[in-house]
Design a protein around this nucleic acid. Structure first.
Lengths: 261, 261
DNA sequence: CGAATAATTGACCGAAATCAATACGGGTGG
DNA sequence: CCACCCGTATTGATTTCGGTCAATTATTCG
């Protein structure tokens, strides 16, 4: 049922973010504000760059991506989204987007009309702040992606991306911390990490040889989370997760601040 | 006078952004909400990564930057800010930042306490939306920086950065569209574009040889804006500027959509 | 089962990093 | 006012990482 999807998807919104999890009344208000549940199939474009939009979408099931493409055909995935994330809430204030939004898998999305969001914004400052927060989380992710491209080499970039994805999926209970499905081709991973598909293939083999992680047929199996995080220089602070989740996602025992030093 | 600085700085906030310029009453409200004007000297760090903050700062004069640094000493400038920009409004919802904020020149900043911003948010949804917009503008910039690092080669990255900076400075009346001061060393430009200082030097010489632009002793002189924008694949849409400013910043005559094609 | 898409592997190339030496320039103090 | 110095910029020689081109091999899916 559509209804059930909405509830499950909404429950994931801002999950495991201290101080920013939804209160029951806010949850209810959001649920009532959904105007439609829609399905898209893999590859379908939900919002085209530049077009005026009156709606924003929250991802309920599946994975979506946001991509920027240049005049010359080269393009880059600037974000990947998982269930419970407000994919293009940015459109609420920007009105039109500077990138495309597309489905990476078959997906279910909840649609919010901007007029509904304006009502929320007028009457519910605390909830508004949580929604604002979720867009700034995206910005923090963007910054880290900039860092990754600029400061890390190929293997580290991929390692970083895998650690990040693992941490985000842990937060919504999709990854247990070791293994998760990642329905992306090596070309798409390349478009995330600024590498060619060929080089992604080489890097993944190396990660396998190093016994750090095994990525094959759309499944990521992390063999040494600690080592992978080390290689990828991964520090999960920027995900603003509850500390238990954050430390677990680094391959450290939760409940302590990490080894002394 | 501090007072005068605040007014001048605030007048630049969201200048030349259609639908998002401040109304006079909003302007006044913001001006009253400033709790302090502070000066920082070049290199000083305003907010350190991770530290709890209760304030956000709007840049009145000078240039600031936001930097992410990795464990190994490599670091990247993830944003550069100009007068009239709300440098770390992100901290209002995030509470602590994932990066450092520092002064690139001697600067004057206006300080807003978060409790003041909460009051604004509670009572003034339209103004809140404009402020929200300004943070999403940062996110759009981030996305473009990701694209730049991933899809462009060294010369194009630098060209893109120069075009972007020129456009942003035009919007606030600091660049006439050809020439402006850019108080950054080549190492800092390198930290923006993901290049070494050595290679930045080579690229700048090439841009000079190509008669595209001349960067020396902190002054950028654009000789062929059209050509520079072409090389840098620069499309100013993501800056959400008023169309006249946007087209002018691409080296096209304002008032038309560009040459037929 | 077969076609199309995705992944792998090798040979070669090129853009930018690195290492290193030198020149410039602008501020300070003699 | 000049000389000195330190940070910045320039230029060259060499190396390296990842891209490109190309040929096979796996997978997936109709």
């Amino acid at each position: 049922m559509q209804h059930k999807n909405v509830i499950e998807g909404l429950e994931l919104l801002l999950r495991n973010r201290d101080h920013f999890q939804l209160r029951p009344d806010e949850f209810e208000l959001l649920r009532e504000s959904v105007c439609e549940v829609r399905e898209l199939s893999r590859g379908q474009v939900a919002v085209r760059q530049g077009e005026e939009v009156q709606i924003s979408t929250l991802l309920l099931q599946g994975m979506m991506t946001r991509k920027v493409d240049g005049r010359d055909g080269r393009r880059h995935l600037v974000a990947v989204h998982f269930p419970g994330e407000f994919v293009d809430l940015h459109a609420y204030t920007l009105k039109h987007l500077d990138h495309d939004v597309a489905a990476l898998t078959n997906v279910k999305i909840a649609v919010f009309r901007h007029e509904q969001l304006m009502k929320i914004q007028a009457d519910h400052p605390a909830l508004t702040r949580r929604l604002w927060f979720s867009t700034l989380l995206d910005a923090a992710l963007h910054r880290q992606w900039v860092y990754r491209l600029s400061c890390l080499d190929a293997a580290s970039r991929v390692a970083h991306f895998i650690c990040e994805t693992n941490a985000r999926l842990m937060a919504i209970g999709v990854s247990g911390g070791r293994k998760f499905g990642l329905p992306m081709t090596q070309s798409e991973i390349g478009e995330v990490c600024g590498l060619t598909n060929v080089h992604v293939s080489r890097v993944l083999r190396r990660l396998r040889d190093l016994k750090l992680c095994d990525v094959s047929r759309s499944v990521v199996d992390i063999l040494d989370l600690r080592g992978l995080a080390e290689l990828g220089q991964f520090q999960p602070d920027y995900l603003y997760l509850r500390s238990a989740i954050a430390t677990a996602s680094m391959g450290q025992a939760p409940g302590r601040a990490g080894p002394g030093k």
